[in-house]
Design a protein around this nucleic acid. Sequence first.
DNA 1: AGATTATATAGTCTTTCTGACTATATAGTC
DNA 2: GACTATATAGTCAGAAAGACTATATAATCT
Lengths: 240, 240
Amino acid sequence: MTAPTYDPRSFPPFAVTVDIVVLTVTTRLEVLVIERGGDPFAGSWALPGGFVLPDESVDAAADRELLEETGLTRGKLEDIHLEQLGTFGAVDRDPRMRVVSVAYLALSPVQPQPTAGTDAVAAHWVPVDDALAAPLAFDHHQILAAAVDRAGAKLEYTTLATSLAGPDFTLGELQHVYEAVWGQPLDRANFRRKVLATQGFVVPTGKRRTGKRGGAPGRVYRPGAGGVMEPPLMRDEVRL
Amino acid sequence: MTAPTYDPRSFPPFAVTVDIVVLTVTTRLEVLVIERGGDPFAGSWALPGGFVLPDESVDAAADRELLEETGLTRGKLEDIHLEQLGTFGAVDRDPRMRVVSVAYLALSPVQPQPTAGTDAVAAHWVPVDDALAAPLAFDHHQILAAAVDRAGAKLEYTTLATSLAGPDFTLGELQHVYEAVWGQPLDRANFRRKVLATQGFVVPTGKRRTGKRGGAPGRVYRPGAGGVMEPPLMRDEVRL
DNA sequence: AGATTATATAGTCTTTCTGACTATATAGTC
DNA sequence: GACTATATAGTCAGAAAGACTATATAATCT
């Protein structure tokens, strides 16, 4: 090994940060970004995030940052799916110093007014397509792309879409989540059949709700307990 | 944010390491472990790994460690699948200092005699079941369990099993890879049908090979170019 | 040598699931 | 009141999987 003995007194010091891709679905798939105030990448969009503190785990840092950026209280936070996405550790990903960033994917059923961080930058929701087309700071384009890929893949074999569809939803709204994330239309009848046949996907509430543009009022469901769909719900192709 | 402004001159310093779960299939699923020489966890098994150096990316560190531990040359390394598994960042995962470890999963078609590291510890292959039953150092039990889960899941929807089956293999040997990773028997005829029907899974070499215990000589295949299986090849249940 | 055992390969049949499609009811909008 | 959007129920053909049978080949046991 090039590194000598595992010695507590001599190791290369790194900064470790967390970056969070918070996705939500309105009419389209959107992501929470902040506008950078200072250099480098001043004025560019970036993902919310920050340093991991010495006395907190990396996962706890992600929890904390999500809370701080979205202003969500602890109780509501439990409704937000948060999972580790991957770690990005290129040597020159931050021009100032050596930073290793652990990226997280969060799925929010609501779009809270984001809180501007203490570094006084604006935070807001933007369509994912716009964010991917814009020049993002650091390697955040790569991170965002990975997050969208992961989200799309997870909708195939888990019931995670309910995490994006709100506290309750009609099957039409749930279908819209799939179509927004996958960027492709689905057959309504077949989608219904699959969702209703999957144990633990949705739970009927007994209520009905009418959409904005008319149409018959659909039954309202809550997220079920289930996790894995087997066999999966599949899309045509994976968009690259 | 609790952390003040993103300031290059004041950040909490972390040690960043990589840990590698190298899996292979012989008669069973096996993992490469090292025997720790010094404290903490002296005498315990641990995953191979080491510090990320200041001038290399995290991915490059994983490449390097794999090379050093297995003694594989660059050319052969290309045959070994290596992917990031996840990052483990609990506050007290190393009793000596704050260490964040990026874990990798490697799938080796061969079992090279492992090289003892410069820290003079023995490295050897052990059955995964034994490793999971033994008291592993640090949080390596958790990492190994995550690796086995990931490997099992990936065999379902990718053609990655060929990375574990050797440079060439019969369908019986490929089936044995699945059975070793999943810990469950598969129907031979149905397995053949699925593999041969999946584009890019295997490529016939035209040769035949006889096993150790007799039986008709099977056709020998090479890994195909394909990546994703759709629909996936499924097992009965996910073992937890 | 012949029986036994292990493996490889081809094929059948039934059930399940999907994709494509039709029909009908309900609610808002032009 | 016609039109449009949505919700829900249902049909039908094809694809795929699970369970199973049959047959051929090679090593090993007796």
